[in-house]
Design a protein around this nucleic acid. Structure first.
Lengths: 209, 209
DNA sequence: TGCCAGAAACCGACCGGTCGGTATGCATCC
DNA sequence: GGATGCATACCGACCGGTCGGTTTCTGGCA
């Protein structure tokens, strides 16, 4: 697995950041797997069900993917890659901490709301991966957390934020809300995702002040 | 911590109010189920594995419990019952909103840290319950959320809190952090749970101000 | 106290079914 | 004629749950 460096590529928030070339069959398989994993969980979704939903045969699935685990990993990876790309893009703008935190948070919430299924699967079953893949996922997650924490830390150092709360705890609270979002969020809910994102960002920034 | 005491557990929607008496065998089964569910997930833990860990036979397990689902529900129910009892106890003290919020939050975080396994299983697999049991669990969860939200709302109305953030969003952020906690928290981690609880409560209260 | 009958607690081999994964055949295209 | 892109048939492992039977407990009666 090639490590994703803080590349300046994909400065398109919320967009598809993966340069992976997929055949139509692969895309159908991944879409079906995503839907079924989100609906019934990883173990609850059978390979047979996935190939039927994707209208392919088992042979086709195992031609493109090594295992059921591999499907799960592809879903995780595309999600994290997008989040990291968005994060790097905001950091590259060199905004003052307050604006940077706001932009990162609202972007993350909007992107999570837009890809609820990926996020739901991710937050629920990432522990089912084999050791190697889990390690890769964990490393990416940690990088996101650490980068966000560093952003808050920088704001505290330069006086933008006066909160006594350690940056790590701030990250735990802010990112915790985001990771929990796919459990209850519905696109047809009463409050638009943009409103929610703004409210949460304002709330966190108020605490940081 | 001991079981839920005979304290008058307030109006409990759809649940039995019986003060569950458990035989040693039942307790061993539940403890083993909890450990294995937390370790390998609901589907990943087989009934066979549970009875071996509990050192009982399958017949004994199905003598006491209707199904594998029933085991899961018992775990959920004991956790929620404890949380609701704690919440009600704090509310009964009639503290001013600021102190009440602090006490509820720190108590919830400490209790979650103390019962990480229950919380981990809960946050990960509550969707696997059958419809009836899921409904019961959901109702209890909603009651917790709504009560907490009402507490914040009251504080906003009487001027204790001046934040413009809707109480519902506050609950989403605060409780989101708690629900996410079992994913990363380790009892032997660098920061004691009490410190974490205090930091988070301070942070949220700072935002509410 | 001794005895016994019925109920509760428990045993574990076994069942039908599903699961992830494999082996192999066979067009199509370079 | 090999590599690619599938289709089809099939496998052994294991799963949650059942069921007929056995052991242990309990209370009433002599």
């Amino acid at each position: 697995m090639t490590e994703t460096q803080p590349t300046a590529a994909a400065a398109e928030p919320g967009g598809d950041a993966a340069p992976v070339r997929r055949s139509p069959v692969e895309r159908r398989i991944l879409a079906a797997a995503l839907r079924l994993f989100a609906e019934r969980g990883f173990d609850g979704a059978s390979v047979q069900g996935i190939v039927e939903a994707a209208d392919v045969t088992k042979g086709a699935l195992y031609h493109y993917f090594d295992s059921k685990d591999a499907l799960l990993y592809e879903i995780y990876h595309s999600l994290i890659a997008r989040q990291l790309a968005d994060l790097d893009a905001v950091l590259a703008e060199g905004l003052p901490p307050r604006e940077a935190v706001r932009k990162v948070l609202t972007g993350l919430i909007l992107s999570t709301a837009e890809h609820v299924d990926e996020a739901k699967v991710f937050s629920r079953e990432w522990h089912r991966l084999d050791d190697a893949r889990m390690h890769a996922v964990r490393a990416d997650r940690r990088r996101y957390h650490n980068t966000f924490r560093a952003l808050v830390e920088q704001g505290r150092r330069d006086g933008s934020f006066t909160t006594p709360t350690p940056a790590d705890t701030v990250a735990i609270v802010a990112l915790g809300m985001v990771n929990q979002l796919p459990r209850w969020y519905r696109a047809d809910g009463p409050k638009p995702a943009a409103d929610l994102a703004a409210e949460v960002a304002d709330f966190i920034l108020a605490a940081l002040d």
